[in-house]
Amino acid sequence: MALLTKKDASLILDPLADNNPITIQVLGICSALAITAELKASVVMAISVIFVLGVGNVVISLMRNIIPSKIRIIVQLIVVATLVIIVDQVLKAFAYELSKTLSVFVGLIITNCIIMGRFEAFALGNGPWKSFLDGIGNALGYGVILIIVGFFRELLGSGTLFGYKVLGDPVKMTGLYSTGYENNGFMIIPPAALIVVGIIIWVQRSRNTALIEDN
């Protein structure tokens, strides 16, 4: 017996490519611009969103039959905010260093449109297991783009990856810098993220023309 049926697998795999939350649905762009100047921050953000979206989707899905439709958005917001605060407090008590790295992301997770979007579009109408897979899938799709953008921005903007000087030292002029290469300061400011995301969207749509919308 396969662990996942074909339909379940597509819940995880679709958002990674042809239904990607960032490049196709253009959700979660705000955080993708804000924190991708470093690869490490991108990875941390991706992991946090995987956790919050996976658990949040299950919680909302379990509550889907008792949530009054008039206040469902508020209820969703409370669920995300509560989860994020619980995680934050527990980390502060038991993994203080990690919680310091995460501090800036906490607010960004709550306002991430992908989370509210998946609660509203999927978890409210599907069972917990499916919702869990959908949450993990979408968060992974979001994380993949974040990591790609973070990789290029940190490499081209600072000449480092995860803080390691992979291209040599720009001050002491070693490695690639000895040939006259310079870091592109533009890459570390947010507009550069928009351009990188744009290029990813372009590449993706030129490989799969079915994704191009008719006008």
């Binding site: 804000a34 924190i35 100047a37 470093e38 490490k40 921050a41 501090s103 800036v104 607010g107 921005r153 940190e154 903007g157 600072s158 570390i188 400011i189």
Partner: peptide, 10 residues
């Protein structure tokens, strides 16, 4: 810092 941008102010 509390919430400076990673890669920039941070």
């Amino acid at each position: 810092h509390q919430s400076e941008t990673p890669g920039l102010g941070a």
